[in-house]
Amino acid sequence: MRNILHVAADLLREALSRKWFLALGLGITLALATVALSLRLEVVDGALAATRFFGGDLGGRVEAVDVALRAIFQGASWLVFYGGLVFGIVACSDFGPSLLAPGRIELMLSLPIRRVELLVGTWLGVLIVSSLAALYGAGGLALILGIKSGFWTAGPLFAALLAGLSFSAIYAAMLAVSLWVRSAALSAAAGFVVFFAGIAAGYRHALLELFQPGPGQEVFRFLTAGLPRISALGHDAAAIAASQPLEWTPLLLNVAGALVFALACLALATWRFEGRDG
């Protein structure tokens, strides 16, 4: 376990030194500062009476502050979830290939670290990086709106964790592919395939109805069965962020399924890695 944490910490250090992640941190900070400095909320008896953004009045509806802020939290959650996944696929695509780069891989394998620990540590590091970025953005927004409106909610934080977890499933597939082809572009392509296929898998039932009964329908059912339900997780993340009613059993099953999918990809990657002579 210690070895896994060492590898994860090593990946975190590497991520922090990259311009991609510095730009992401800077971008999130800038967006939060803009919201903090230009948004004015006037709350009377728990009702949002006026909203001004850059001095302009944003509509005249007076309603309970948590109801009024639902749309903002929901919008932020969609942005963090889908924006975060796309950014993560692009920014993390060369972690795997650079781990396997000639010279580095020999050095890593000369250390007393098992190959599976190397893979799991890399995956865990990416999971931590993506979750931290999502938590920073969503938590910062919740903090600013909490200070300005007096309405405090942990919903956006849970939504951010869900985004981080969804990315970990995608990244596990990216890492497995990089064991076959040491290419950042192909790793990103694999990430996008799982991303879009996962969106389709979230609407699996609706899409299945579009097929004529027959082999085509069964092939689609089979191919999408094991994919993480990205769109369903995104939908639930937005609902959690906005403190809206939610069916917890399907969400927990989808979360467990995405985690098990990630473990399956790691097992496949380990099988491939163990078969290589260095």
Binding site: A225, G226, L227, V260
Partner: peptide, 17 residues
């Protein structure tokens, strides 16, 4: 393990649909 975990993932997520 990969095959078994993929089957388990499919079962879990299908149950949640």
């Amino acid at each position: 393990a990969f095959v078994l975990l993929l089957i388990a993932a499919a079962w879990l997520m299908s149950a949640g649909e």
